[in-house]
Nucleic acid binder design. Sequence first.
DNA 1: CTAAACTGTTACTTTATAAACAACAGGTTC
DNA 2: GAACCTGTTGTTTATAAAGTAACAGTTTAG
Lengths: 143, 143
Amino acid sequence: MKYSYRLSDGVHILAYISIAPTASLSSTSIAASIEANPSVVRKLMVELKKAGLLTTKNGSAEPRLARSADDITLLDVYRAVEASQSILHVDPRTNMQCPVGANIQETLNGVYDRVQQAAEQEMQAITLTEIIDGIQERRRQSL
Amino acid sequence: MKYSYRLSDGVHILAYISIAPTASLSSTSIAASIEANPSVVRKLMVELKKAGLLTTKNGSAEPRLARSADDITLLDVYRAVEASQSILHVDPRTNMQCPVGANIQETLNGVYDRVQQAAEQEMQAITLTEIIDGIQERRRQSL
DNA sequence: CTAAACTGTTACTTTATAAACAACAGGTTC
DNA sequence: GAACCTGTTGTTTATAAAGTAACAGTTTAG
């Protein structure tokens, strides 16, 4: 498959708005920073808005964080933009006539849930502030 | 992308060999349990063999676990068969002329690594024995 | 000893998801 | 009202995975 960059691009959008609030914040400008298509950026922004992370203004390029960067976690962005919501996927088509095929799906669901929760717990511990600070720190060091 | 069922199918192969050692263990029989293509199963088995989880015999259907099911973790199978090895993916193409685009990749790599480690730690705690027991338990309850 | 079955391998096709691209109706700003 | 913007729809392209086919060489059974 083609890998999804939705989470990375979603974070990029929020970080860009936070870091460069004086620059143009049109979907075209943000897309130039990501090197993505403005339409893709607009679609992601709609998802971020639905999730309550972003406010926008139809017709005008004035996106703002809907709440403090301290209060936005990687998990929030993940849930907002990722289509799948699961990092591991149980094969949905196994032979139900076979003892293994009939019972492996539920079993794997159980263990995959544990992996998912571990990943989500770590994602919840990472704030947008932390990511913004990381970008700013690297920026300073490269000057 | 199309979701990968390689991990699920890899576990299925190992579990099938453990649970049904008296049945035919040909790639065709295993594939019938997974409802997958025998060729796909053979390719996965080659990966499992390379990773030291499975022994096979060319020309004869006698696959065996290379070590105790207690000593095989979900992480072992994940590393053996998954092409990507990463659950999250940093967008590799951002604008290096932009302060955000130039520094977000490294920053995200750092935080994604933490999420990856949390997930892998949990995967390492899940053994093939545990999965086999889960399948057997469900099997008993459905009789 | 040979026929059947199997593995290991290669090559090609199909399918599924995401991103790129294009276009436009309607809102906003100056 | 001209320029720019968002929100939205639809189409195309790229890519990873699975399906399919084929076959050389190995093993096993009769």
